[in-house]
Measured scan of single mutants.
Amino acid sequence: ELSWTAEAEKMLGKVPFFVRKKVRKNTDNYAREIGEPVVTADVFRKAKEHLG
């Protein structure tokens, strides 16, 4: 699991709890794919757009 900024964690907190774990995993995987060592708010937004 990658490191997350406080802002990205806050955004994740707005995701319904029953899918939060999956969203975190998918976002981590997306960040790795694009070469990001940390999940930022920008990476979170891009993952959301990319993953739907």
Rank of each mutant, 00 (worst) to 15 (best):
A47Q: 04
I34Q: 11
F18R: 14
V43T: 05
N26F: 14
F17Q: 09
K48T: 13
W4L: 01
G52S: 13
E33Y: 13
E33F: 11
R20H: 03
R24T: 02
R32Q: 07
G13T: 11
D28C: 05
K10F: 11
R20W: 04
V39W: 00
W4R: 00
F18N: 14
V23N: 03
T5H: 04
M11C: 06
T5W: 02
E1R: 10
N29G: 07
P16L: 05
F44G: 00
R20A: 04
Y30R: 02
V38P: 00
N29A: 14
F44I: 03
E9S: 07
H50Q: 10
E7S: 06
R20I: 04
K46M: 09
N26W: 15
R32K: 09
R24F: 03
Y30H: 03
V43K: 03
M11A: 07
K25M: 14
S3C: 09
V39T: 02
E7W: 04
G13A: 15
V23C: 06
K25E: 14
A8W: 01
V23Y: 08
R45I: 12
N29F: 09
A6T: 10
L12G: 01
V23T: 07
M11P: 00
K22F: 12
V38K: 07
W4F: 00
G52T: 14
A47D: 01
R24N: 02
N26V: 12
V39C: 02
K25Y: 12
T5D: 07
I34M: 13
V43L: 07
L51A: 10
F44A: 02
K10T: 11
D28R: 03
T40C: 03
K14S: 10
L51T: 10
K10I: 13
A8V: 02
F44C: 02
F17K: 11
K22G: 08
A8Q: 01
K46T: 06
V19M: 15
S3H: 14
K21R: 12
I34G: 04
Y30M: 03
L2T: 07
R45H: 07
A47R: 04
R20G: 02
E36S: 12
E1W: 12
A8D: 00
R20Q: 07
R24C: 03
K48M: 15
A8T: 02
E36D: 04
A47G: 04
K10M: 13
M11V: 04
G35R: 06
A6N: 09
V38F: 07
N29D: 14
D28F: 03
R20M: 04
A41W: 04
E7M: 07
K21G: 14
S3N: 10
E33Q: 12
L12F: 04
T27N: 02
V39G: 00
V15C: 08
E49W: 07
T5E: 04
E9V: 11
K14T: 09
V43W: 02
V38R: 06
P37M: 13
K48F: 14
T40H: 03
K21A: 15
E33C: 09
T5S: 08
N29L: 12
P16G: 04
A6H: 10
L12C: 03
G13C: 10
A41L: 09
K22N: 13
P16T: 03
V38Q: 08
D42H: 08
R24S: 02
K25A: 12
R20E: 02
W4T: 00
K22A: 13
A47H: 06
A8H: 00
K22V: 13
E7N: 05
P16I: 04
A8Y: 01
D42G: 06
E49F: 10
V43I: 10
V23S: 03
K21N: 13
A6S: 10
L51E: 08
V23P: 00
E36I: 08
K22I: 13
